[in-house]
Design a protein around this nucleic acid. Sequence first.
DNA 1: CTTATTATGCTCGGATTGAGTATAATAAGG
DNA 2: CCTTATTATACTCAATCCGAGCATAATAAG
Lengths: 318, 318
Amino acid sequence: MQEKKSARLNEIAVVGHHDHGAQVELTAVLVAVPNGNPVVLTIGAAAALPSGPLESSHRSLQSGLRDWVEQQTGHPLGYIEQLYTFADRDRSGEDPERRVISISYLGLTREEPSRATSSGSWRNWYEFFPWEDHRYGAPPVITDVIEPALRQWANEAAREEKRRQRWQRAIVCFGFDDQNWNEELTLQRYELLYEAGLVEEGARRNGAAGAQLVPGRAMQGDHRRILATGIARLRTKIKYRPVVFELMPPAFTLLQLQRTVEALAGVTVHKQNFRRLIEQQELVEETGQMSSETGGRPAKLFQFRHAVLDEHPVAGTK
Amino acid sequence: MQEKKSARLNEIAVVGHHDHGAQVELTAVLVAVPNGNPVVLTIGAAAALPSGPLESSHRSLQSGLRDWVEQQTGHPLGYIEQLYTFADRDRSGEDPERRVISISYLGLTREEPSRATSSGSWRNWYEFFPWEDHRYGAPPVITDVIEPALRQWANEAAREEKRRQRWQRAIVCFGFDDQNWNEELTLQRYELLYEAGLVEEGARRNGAAGAQLVPGRAMQGDHRRILATGIARLRTKIKYRPVVFELMPPAFTLLQLQRTVEALAGVTVHKQNFRRLIEQQELVEETGQMSSETGGRPAKLFQFRHAVLDEHPVAGTK
DNA sequence: CTTATTATGCTCGGATTGAGTATAATAAGG
DNA sequence: CCTTATTATACTCAATCCGAGCATAATAAG
């Protein structure tokens, strides 16, 4: 039976012989948003994402990650989602025969940043992507550094068509020339800067780190790319799934909810329209209580209507 | 250096010791749509998806898959997208210590189904999911078999709340009680039928295959779940990315394009509105030629405007 | 009692979208 | 040649959605 199966698979198979096994690593993008600050759990001075080898005792990838994170942070993980699996050869500089498979996950938690884990620290994710925060207008770094650097990079191409293509790509990613800023393109923007050699990781690979780098903290290995993947995924997801509530306390005001969404998306939204959307989708219900809060008229407190998870297959903020 | 790194990672790590390596397998959902039939490449009588172990000579997962598929089908793969990575223990019944990591991909090609590969055959994907094709109205199997079976399954639950939850889930997935059919829920529907023991794979696991099964061809292992993942992904993707064109010949009429979209989505669309959408998004341009075709007024031939890939980050059909 | 700040209700116009009507251009059958 | 069937293509209309703003309410601070 075993032999027959192998034979059939090999008829259309990637290879004819088995590899000697790969090392499998789990990497987590753990996100929380305490009072309007989007933070991610990092380890050590190199700002690595928490990760470790897959243990054989784990029943599944998901449950393994969940157990581990809950034990470490002391808070339940509300939401877990697989992000991407990397397996490129050059990721590990060691034995080129032994490949590292890196399976990355996005996890949402209500962890307070004050309660630090043994050696981990929660960092604002815009430290790594200063150009992604447009809540207070477009960051100056875009027009001061990124735009000229990308224009130069575009002009370095040999052929005219290539130059035009490069610049077109920059326009789409960063919204130059009055184009709109699209907050969901976080990964594409990082990859563009990487290719242009404008972030440390990209310059590392290209050898010559000649060009001036764009501000923004680097991470270990390709972890900044994984983080960019997680941010992009979360920014699209909140629009059609009620995942923001995994980041909220049990009771909250609508403004707190809005601030959380804005922190994730990196853009501001129209307050009245935001409320209209939330209410007409019936995502929340009043708790009956009010919030004293920071100056101004007291606000009603709301809680997530958990029944929506049963009802709507799609529903989200914006 | 190596030692320091390991020590740091272990502070927050999934485990304290290394596994002895896992076997990595690539699995492909290869899709084509020759004249309105959505087909998928399967291998052998058990209808397995093509798969094989990852070879160490491959530079990356993506390139490995691409090389292999193009060699086998003789056609270039227009589009590749990673679907999901499975690593559950019980997937392979053999050595429980040696885990199989299965990385699945979705690939789109213009392969003609007539040109069969050595032992592979292209099958209409609705053979595996008869309840997913609503192009000619809702399939009778839904009201005749699925609805009563799911109602019974719901009623088998011990507690009242659980019964209500189960039935609510069935309503959302299949659109009972005048709810709308949502074609994107392919995976959720399959998982529901699986849990209810109404598909062969689910009955297999539950041991007693007592209940009457829903019609639909099973696949090897969990390949039908992977296929459901691919279909669901494709159905959502065509709405905001111009991936359909990877499945089209160089020149096509708007009706052919519409039929392809409908084949994938499993629902029909309003013809005039479909054209309006395609044109206002400037996804296509006239070739200048007309098509003789099947009776009726000749139609203009169009081709994909490749420039949109540079321009729009988002654009799709519907 | 004025000012600042936040909460909340409501309106309005433009864009999008679902659904239909109308007309044009061809082939096939008589 | 004329009718019918079939497909292509243009245009209309209304409901809804959505961005943006106005207006008012309720609190704290000075």
